[in-house]
Design a protein around this nucleic acid. Sequence first.
DNA 1: GCGGGTCATAGCGCAAGGCTATCACCAGCG
DNA 2: CGCTGGTGATAGCCTTGCGCTATGACCCGC
Lengths: 301, 301
Amino acid sequence: MTRWDTAPYSLRQLQYLVAVAELGGFRRAAEACGVAQPSLSAQIAQVEEVLGIQMFERGARGVRVTAAGARVIERARAVLLASRDLADTARQHSDPLTGTVRIGIIPTVCPYLLPEVAPALRAQLPNLHAVWVEDKTHALLEQIETAELDGAILALDPRVTHLEHAPIGDDPFVLAAAPGHPLAKRSGPASPDVLEGETVFLLEDGHCFRDQALALCGATGAREADLKATGLSTLVQMVGGGCGVTLLPKLAVPVENRRGQLAVRAFKSPAPTRRLILAWRKGSAMKRPLDAMANVIRKRM
Amino acid sequence: MTRWDTAPYSLRQLQYLVAVAELGGFRRAAEACGVAQPSLSAQIAQVEEVLGIQMFERGARGVRVTAAGARVIERARAVLLASRDLADTARQHSDPLTGTVRIGIIPTVCPYLLPEVAPALRAQLPNLHAVWVEDKTHALLEQIETAELDGAILALDPRVTHLEHAPIGDDPFVLAAAPGHPLAKRSGPASPDVLEGETVFLLEDGHCFRDQALALCGATGAREADLKATGLSTLVQMVGGGCGVTLLPKLAVPVENRRGQLAVRAFKSPAPTRRLILAWRKGSAMKRPLDAMANVIRKRM
DNA sequence: GCGGGTCATAGCGCAAGGCTATCACCAGCG
DNA sequence: CGCTGGTGATAGCCTTGCGCTATGACCCGC
C-alpha cells in the first residue's frame, strides 16, 4: 500500500534549492527564479527547517553547499528531472486530436463505409490513429462498457440509450431481387406492402440489420427464407438465383451489386431506414476526438 | 543551463492523482489523503486543466483512468518516488551528530592528544565519523577556508580571528633539560628569566609552537640553537645530549619523556601557556557537531 | 571607517487551497 | 416508477501560504 501523506516541501522549494546551489547565492537564484530575494530566503529557510538540514553555509560572499545539502540537492535534481518528464509526457498527450482511438463497427457497415472514410479520416485528423474492430452490436456494446473500445459505429437501437452518440447518417433500406423476379418488373419506389407473401432472405441472429429487416417483414406478412446468412454478400448471391428477395442497406449496394446482377428498388417515402451513429461511453474522455471523427464521416455519407 | 521556471502543478496534486488512480474514486482518495472530497476534486480539476489532459472518466460508480491519464500518472509516481528518496536522504542526514567531519590538527598536539581522545569521541559520538589531518597551522587555516576541512585543533593565535572556535584546554610550557644541566639542578617552578643566556632548541619555521617559544625566549634573552627540528622528539633527543635546553608543551611530556631521560620543570605562575582550541569557519554548518566534539575533548584534558 | 555586497527580518496583501453545505446525476431496488 | 445511496461538481467562506517592499545586520575590501 502506498503512503498517502504529502511531502513537507514543494516542487518550488526544490527548484529554489537547486538554483541557489547552482548559482552560489540567494540573490542570483532569486533573480533567476523570478522572485524577490526575501521570498526565496523564506522558502529555503523553511525547507531547511522541515528537513532538519542546513543546506547552505551563509557567508559574506555568497553561500556554500554543505555536505548533507549536496546529497539532498542531488535528490532534488532527480525529483525535478522526473517532474520535467511528466510535463513532457503531458504535453505529448495534451492534444485531444492526437493519439489512438479504438472504434468498433458493425459488419453491415464496415466493408462499405470504411474504405471510403478511412482515408478521409487520416487526411483530416492526421494525428488521430484509429484502430477498427468489426463485430456485432452486442459485442461492441460490451467492449465499450469495459473500455476495450472507445466508441463504435452502430445502428441506432434501444440498447444504446445509456451511451452518448453523434449521428453519422441515415441509411435507407432497399429491396433487391433478381432481374426476372416479379417485384423487379416495376421500377421506382415500392411500398413495403409488396413484401406480403414473399420469401425474404435475412441475416443470421445477432445482426442488428436482421432485426430491423425482420420488423419490416413482420409488419407486411413476408416469410423468412430457411437460410440465415452470415453476410450481405450471401444474401445477394441467394437472391440472384431468383428464389426470393432480400433487403439491403443502401450503403451496401454499390459494393454488393457492383456487377448489376440484381434489380434494386427504393421504398416509398417514408422509406424504412436505419440511423447510423458513432456511440461512446457516457462521459468518455474520447468525446472530443470521436465527435470530430463523426463530423468527418458524416460529410462522406 | 538548467531552466528555472517552476512546474505548473504541485507534489500534492500528483499525490492526489495517484491516489485517485489507485483507489478508483475521488471520495476514497480524499479520505486516504486526509482532505475533503471537494478540495481534492478542485486540485484534480486544476491539474487536468493546466496539463490539458482529462485524466479520469467520471462515472456513477467511480472513475476510470484514461489512456493519457495513465501515462501521466505513471510519471507522477516516478516523481513521488524520487521525492520519497529525497525525504529518506534528508532523514539520514538530519541528525547533526551524524556523518563525517574532517578535522585538522597541528603536529605539536596530534600525537599526544589524539590517542587519548579518539576513543572517547568514538564512544560518546558514535555516529560522528572524524577524519583527522595533521598539518601546520597555516595549511590547516587554508583548508578550512576552502572547506576541505570542517574544523581544526589549533593553538589560539592572531590568525584565527575570523574563525569561530571553542576552547579545548590550556597547555602550559615546561622547561626541559638533561638531568646534569645547571637548570635541572633545582626542581620546582622556574622563572622565565632562567633562560637568559641559555641555548634553546626550537622547532623549524611554520610550527606555531616555535613562534610561541621564540616569543618567550626573546623576552628573556635566550639564544636559539643552530638546529631547527621537525618535531618535538628531535628536541628531546638533542637536549638529552646536555648541550642545551628546550621548551615543551606539557601535553607532550608523558609521551616524549616516557623514559625519564630529561628533567622537566614547570614555570612559575603565571606560567607561559598556549590555549588549544577547536576552530571552524564562521557560520559553518558543522558548528553543532564540532561544539559537541570540543566538549568531549575538553573533559579529557 | 566607509561603501557595496551578502542574507535575514518585518509587515502587509493577495490568492491558493482548505472546509461545509448542497446540488446534479446515475444505478439499483422495492 | 419513484426512492435511496452512491458518485463527483459547485458555491461560498475563511485560513494560510507565499509573494512583495522596506529595512536591518553583517562582512569584506578599499
